[in-house]
C-alpha cells in the first residue's frame, strides 16, 4: 500500500473528510449525537495547540462507531468535550436532541463513559454494589434495574464474581466490571475507551459479541476508541478517523475497507521491452513501475477503470501477466493509509 493521503470520495467535498456525515444531513434522521464545528485549543499565542479542529459528525441512535487516530490526534479531547469534561472554544454538541450548552445536565445525563479502563469503579465495593451505585447516581432506580444488572453480569460472564470486592479481581475482570457499570447506568449514549484492554482473547471475543447483543437489545449508541483494530472491525458499524485534531475519514467499516481494496493494484508482468516500460510510465504517471530482471511490477493507485486500461495496455504490448493483486486490506492497513502510519 502507498502512504499517499486518501483521495476524496467526492470531488465537491473539498476539505471535508472521507464520507463525512455532517450535522446538517444527519438532523433529518434525528441522531443520538450531533457534533458540529467542535474546536478546542490549549495554551495561547505561539504555544497554542489546536487539539480539536472543527470536528463535525453525527451518529444515529443504536449504532456503534469507532473513533480512531494516532496518539495526539485529538480523540480524547473530542470525547471529553462531548461529555462536558472539557469546555470547547467553539462548536456545539447535541445529545438525544438536547443542546449540551443550553442544558448541560440534561444532555450529559444521557451519556456515560468508560474513560479510565479498569480504574472506573470503586475497588472497595463489590461488582453488584458498583453497578447499583453508578446506576443510582445517574438517577436510575436501582431496585427497578436489578434484573437488568443480573442479566448484564450473565452476559459479561461476571455472575460468579458479583459479590466479590473489585480490588480482588484480575485486571481483565476489573475491565469487564468497568464496562458493566457503565452499561448499568441506563445511558442512551455510551463512550468506551479501550474496552478490551487487558482482556485475554477469549474474553475479548465474548465481550465483543455481547456488546453487539446489548446494543441491539437496548438501542444503545456506542462510541468506541480502541487500539485493537480487530475490535473496531468486529464491533463497529462505522469508523471516524482523526488526525491532527481533524476528522480525516468518516465511513462505514465496509466502505472504508472497500475503498482501500480498490485503491491499489499490483501487477507483475514479463516480456516487456524497455520502450514499452517507458511508455507505460508515461501513460500512467501515478503508477510505481519497477523492473527486476525480466519482470516488471506495476503498482497502480487507481480506480477500476484505470486498472482495466493498464491491463489493456500491457496486452497491447504483448506482455505476459504473471499476477494481479489488489491486496486484502484490514482495518490496520486502512488506518495506516489514512494517517500516514502513525501509532494509534
Amino acid at each position: 500500500m502507498t502512504t499517499e493521503p486518501p483521495t476524496a470520495v467526492d470531488a465537491d467535498e473539498g476539505d471535508r473528510p472521507r464520507g463525512s456525515r455532517d450535522a446538517e444531513s444527519a438532523t433529518e434522521a434525528s441522531p443520538a449525537l450531533v457534533v458540529d464545528g467542535l474546536t478546542k485549543r490549549f495554551g495561547s499565542g505561539d504555544d497554542a495547540v489546536t487539539a480539536v479542529d472543527d470536528v463535525s459528525f453525527a451518529i444515529d441512535s443504536g449504532s456503534v462507531v469507532g473513533l480512531l487516530g494516532p496518539n495526539g490526534a485529538g480523540k480524547t479531547t473530542a470525547i471529553k468535550s462531548i461529555l462536558g469534561l472539557v469546555v470547547p472554544d467553539s462548536g456545539s454538541v447535541s445529545i438525544d436532541g438536547i443542546d449540551a450548552r443550553e442544558s448541560p445536565h440534561a444532555a450529559h445525563g444521557r451519556v456515560d463513559a468508560m474513560l479510565e479502563g479498569a480504574r472506573n469503579d470503586y475497588w472497595r465495593l463489590t461488582v453488584r454494589e458498583n453497578l447499583r451505585y453508578f446506576a443510582s447516581i445517574s438517577g436510575a432506580d436501582p431496585s427497578a434495574a436489578s434484573d437488568r444488572h443480573e442479566e448484564l453480569l450473565e452476559q459479561l460472564d461476571l455472575a460468579a464474581q458479583g459479590d466479590e470486592v473489585v480490588r480482588n479481581l484480575s485486571r481483565g475482570m476489573k475491565q469487564k466490571v468497568s464496562l458493566a457499570s457503565v452499561l448499568a447506568s441506563d445511558a442512551s449514549v455510551v463512550f468506551l475507551d479501550e474496552p478490551t484492554l487487558g482482556l485475554d482473547i477469549e474474553s475479548s471475543l465474548t465481550l465483543r459479541s455481547e456488546l453487539r447483543r446489548i446494543v441491539a437489545e437496548r438501542e444503545l449508541t456506542v462510541i468506541v476508541s480502541s487500539h485493537d483494530m480487530s475490535v473496531i472491525e468486529d464491533v463497529c458499524d462505522r469508523v471516524i478517523v482523526m488526525q491532527d485534531g481533524r476528522v480525516v475519514a468518516d465511513e462505514t467499516v465496509s466502505e472504508l475497507l472497500d475503498s482501500f481494496e480498490t485503491q491499489e493494484y499490483r501487477i507483475v508482468a514479463r516480456g516487456l521491452e524497455g520502450t514499452a516500460v517507458a511508455a507505460i510510465r508515461e501513460a500512467f504517471p501515478d503508477a510505481d513501475v519497477t523492473e527486476t530482471g525480466d519482470r516488471v511490477r506495476v503498482t497502480l493507485p487507481a480506480t477500476s477503470s484505470e486498472f482495466y486500461r493498464l491491463v489493456a495496455r500491457l496486452e497491447a504490448e504483448n506482455a505476459r501477466i504473471d499476477s494481479v493483486d489488489s491486496g486484502t486490506p484490514d482495518m490496520e492497513a486502512a488506518f495506516l493509509e489514512l494517517t500516514g502510519g502513525g501509532d494509534r
Binding site: G84, H105, H108, V111, E116, G117, W123, I137, S138
Partner: peptide, 14 residues
C-alpha cells in the same frame, strides 16, 4: 486518583 471523578460529573444532577 481512583478514576471515578469524571463519572460523577456525567450525571443529570451536575
Amino acid at each position: 486518583q481512583w478514576g471515578t471523578l469524571e463519572r460523577h460529573f456525567i450525571t443529570p444532577f451536575g
